[in-house]
Write a protein that binds this DNA or RNA. Structure first.
Lengths: 153, 153
DNA sequence: GGCGCCTTTTACGTTTACGTCAATTCTATA
DNA sequence: TATAGAATTGACGTAAACGTAAAAGGCGCC
């Protein structure tokens, strides 16, 4: 029945283990720390993106998991799918030069960058179109609401 | 039995609403004309956005349907949901001033414009972040490719 | 020693706009 | 008339990333 704090038996406050070696956190703390939900963390694990240790059935996240989570969140931020992120992370090899991983990441990044730029163009289009429509609608409204005089609002 | 060509017959058999030019088209032609699929047209009808006449079971689209479809496509282009589009179109009243409709459209448009601008900002963010990461990755790759010494942490 | 909080697994639900059969009927044309 | 092409309804599938119970087991605390 050991618990989170392998190094702390006497003073068992939540975290802040002075031990620089292992600071294992449970799912709740992990979620709070990175602004995600518990469901998200379990989901990522289910998808093979995270691999926390277990103490019995309780998940214990290491700093390796934290690094991976940071990468996941960065990936999501720039629009990669979880599958892409996984594909890239799966290539990580702590003993090698990771050239393959880097090349894949670069390749995917270029494509994603292209997609983002295309999206931006589409959005700009939409903004322009919408602005134009709004002007027209405003015009119609003022015509209808101010038959005698023009009213500014 | 009878077909699309109601005007071809000497006597107009059934014309409840007086249609001047007989520009009734079936679903295939309609789809081609507006670059959508048959499925899409049926889906829009299912959602209450279109209401083609029927000749037996065959859908016949009038120019009113065409106008509505144009609006739908414009709405989709600027990012409205079909539900929004329907909500706005449902307010259309050929006998009134449509002030309500216009106000709703304007209101929704303002919100949609805000969303679009926010999205653009997010995309710009992502583009910047991604570009930065790509530079870093390129850097790492050149360091690894070069036989010179390198320091990593 | 009861309460409340944390955690677990399982599993269905959500959202949007259609795609993709499948089985069948209707129509046009050779 | 035979057959290819259109059209119909119905219904399940898709994609992404979780949300939301439900039912249960442990833990510390006062």
């Amino acid at each position: 029945m050991k618990l989170i704090s392998a190094g702390e038996t006497a003073a068992n406050t939540n975290n802040m283990s002075v031990e620089s070696g292992e600071d294992l956190v449970r799912i709740g703390e992990m979620a709070k720390k990175y602004g995600v939900t518990l469901r998200t963390l379990r989901f990522y694990e289910d998808k093979g993106l995270l691999n926390p240790q277990r103490d019995g059935s309780t998940r214990l996240y290491t700093r390796r998991d934290k690094a991976r989570l940071k990468l996941i969140l960065l990936g999501r931020k720039v629009g990669f799918s979880l599958r892409d992120v996984k594909q890239m992370m799966d290539l990580y090899d702590p003993t090698g030069s990771n050239t393959k991983q880097l090349r894949l990441a670069l390749d995917k990044s270029e494509k994603q960058l292209a997609r983002l730029q295309k999206q931006r163009a589409l959005i700009d289009d939409a903004i322009n179109e919408l602005s134009g429509s709004m002007s027209a609608v405003r015009q119609m409204l003022t015509e209808r609401t101010a038959p005698q005089a023009s009213v500014a609002s």
